[in-house]
Simulated scan of single mutants.
Amino acid sequence: MAVKVKKIERKKMPFLERIYIFYIIAGMARTFRHFIRNLLNTKNIEFLEYPEQKPEDITPRYRGLHRLTKYESGELKCVACDMCATACPAKCIYIEACEVEGSKEKAPKVFNIDLLECVFCGLCVEACPKDAIRMDSGIFTKVEGKREDFISDINELSSRKRGDF
């Protein structure tokens, strides 16, 4: 059985369309118009002096930096089940478990989140069976000088409180 192949001829584009010069000039003209308009009338430029001024349009469902929750006794709710690390598409969560004396459950000895790898999707929060990890800290940016400072460890995660939006 022979396969029928239909050839479709492409129309040759004119030279000016092939180099996209018209579109480049149109885009640059629009950018230049915005630049001149903002340069002449600086009072209409909206800006926010973050973190002194907080944005007003942040909803309670907005995902901020992670935090680990605790029981009222002060003990972490996390049982190091590794569900959050398994659900994480960026693979930015590292958990090392240890056994708790006098209990059948485990606890995290090491719980690190690499914030430079994290995509803030919230799948770790959804996967947690104990509601131990949340993204409602109210902290939306973190500024540091070195890459190592963007790794949140168990002490930093457990010390964060629920933020007010």
Score class of each variant (00 low, 15 high):
66 H>G: 00
43 K>W: 01
113 I>K: 10
113 I>M: 10
30 R>M: 14
142 K>V: 02
135 M>Q: 00
114 D>H: 11
67 R>L: 14
111 F>A: 08
110 V>N: 10
139 I>E: 14
94 Y>D: 07
156 E>F: 04
4 K>A: 05
11 K>F: 11
99 E>H: 01
111 F>T: 11
164 D>M: 09
123 L>K: 09
6 K>H: 04
101 E>N: 10
10 R>H: 15
13 M>S: 15
84 C>Y: 05
157 L>W: 03
64 G>N: 08
84 C>A: 07
158 S>V: 01
12 K>H: 03
61 R>H: 13
163 G>K: 00
1 M>L: 01
118 C>E: 08
120 F>L: 15
44 N>V: 11
156 E>Y: 08
87 A>F: 06
43 K>N: 06
14 P>F: 08
115 L>R: 13
63 R>T: 02
3 V>P: 08
26 A>H: 13
48 L>V: 15
142 K>P: 04
71 Y>A: 08
122 G>T: 06
59 T>Y: 05
18 R>Y: 04
8 I>P: 04
80 A>R: 05
77 K>H: 01
110 V>Y: 14
149 D>E: 15
61 R>E: 12
153 D>H: 09
104 K>N: 12
87 A>E: 02
6 K>N: 08
28 M>G: 15
16 L>A: 09
150 F>Q: 07
36 I>F: 05
48 L>K: 10
62 Y>S: 12
78 C>S: 01
115 L>H: 06
84 C>M: 12
152 S>K: 03
70 K>Q: 10
77 K>L: 10
12 K>V: 11
107 A>R: 15
157 L>P: 02
120 F>K: 00
80 A>D: 03
28 M>F: 14
